[in-house]
């Protein structure tokens, strides 16, 4: 995470910079995350070992999974041009590794998409696709739909992210604005169970029509389900022999 780091870890106030500090400065991922940052999950231990098999000595380690935080203005270059137009409709802006992400509430998604397509200073005529991400520990915002827009006129790319909860996985469809989203929304529905209201025919696209569950969700196991191989079962890869 390359955004601003908190230079004073707890207990270090008033002390001279110790050699450990230098290591912290060199590798920002060693800086403890500020307590007010929004964590999307927690990682326990190290090396992926769990339970009695964990002889690593790191069993008690708890590290928070924190995604890159919100950026502050000015964003620089054309980022500000786009952000100015969208200002009233966005929750926050994240800039990470030179890519800009606009977080949008679902009731604003249609307005954002229409503005992106129609505004002569934006001209995002190209919707590259819709992707889903499932953060099971991000309570109330478990399911994210991620849209990648491109402007061929201005040669720009942005990302728009909409988060909804597992309990109410509804968000508006943008097929009416970007017909290209048709199959992508069907795929995201198929894989995550996100329901795109207003889609002309929201049916499964990759999995069979009568498939139970949404395979790309984190609580859905990989393998280990009855397959049509005449009684043969395959254990899930996370239960096979593994070193991590």
């Amino acid at each position: 995470m390359s955004d601003e780091k908190d230079p004073t870890p707890q207990g270090a106030e008033g002390m001279d910079k110790s050699p450990e500090q230098a290591a912290v400065d060199q590798s920002p991922e060693n800086v403890p995350a500020p307590a007010d940052e929004h964590a999307v999950g927690e990682r326990h231990g190290m090396f992926g070992v769990r339970g009695t098999g964990d002889t690593s000595g790191y069993g008690g380690l708890v590290s928070r999974v924190v995604l890159p935080g919100a950026a502050q203005r000015p964003f620089g270059g054309w980022f500000d041009t786009v952000a100015d137009k969208l200002d009233d409709l966005i929750e926050q802006v994240v800039i990470h590794r030179g890519e800009i992400t606009f977080h949008v509430a679902r009731h604003n998604l249609e307005a954002v998409a229409r503005l992106l397509r129609d505004d002569p200073t934006l001209r995002f005529e190209f919707l590259s696709g819709v992707s889903g991400v499932h953060y099971p520990d991000d309570t109330g915002r478990e399911l994210h739909a991620v849209y990648h827009f491109g402007s061929m006129t201005f040669n720009r790319r942005i990302r728009v992210e909409v988060a909804v909860s597992d309990a109410d996985p509804h968000l508006p469809s943008v097929v009416g604005i970007y017909p290209a989203a048709d199959w992508h929304e069907r795929e995201t529905y198929d894989m995550f169970g996100l329901i795109f209201d207003g889609h002309p025919a929201l049916t499964r696209i990759l999995m069979p029509d009568d498939w139970p569950g949404h395979p790309q969700r984190k609580d859905y196991p990989l393998g280990g389900i009855p397959v049509e191989y005449k009684g043969g079962t395959v254990p899930p890869p996370d239960q096979r022999r593994s070193y991590n």
């Binding site: 590794r97 890519e99 992400t101």
Partner: peptide, 15 residues
């Protein structure tokens, strides 16, 4: 080789 390297949290799209 077994555990692999860690990649900082975030997302990227490079077409």
């Amino acid at each position: 080789v077994t555990e692999g390297f860690r990649v900082p949290a975030g997302q990227a799209y490079v077409p």
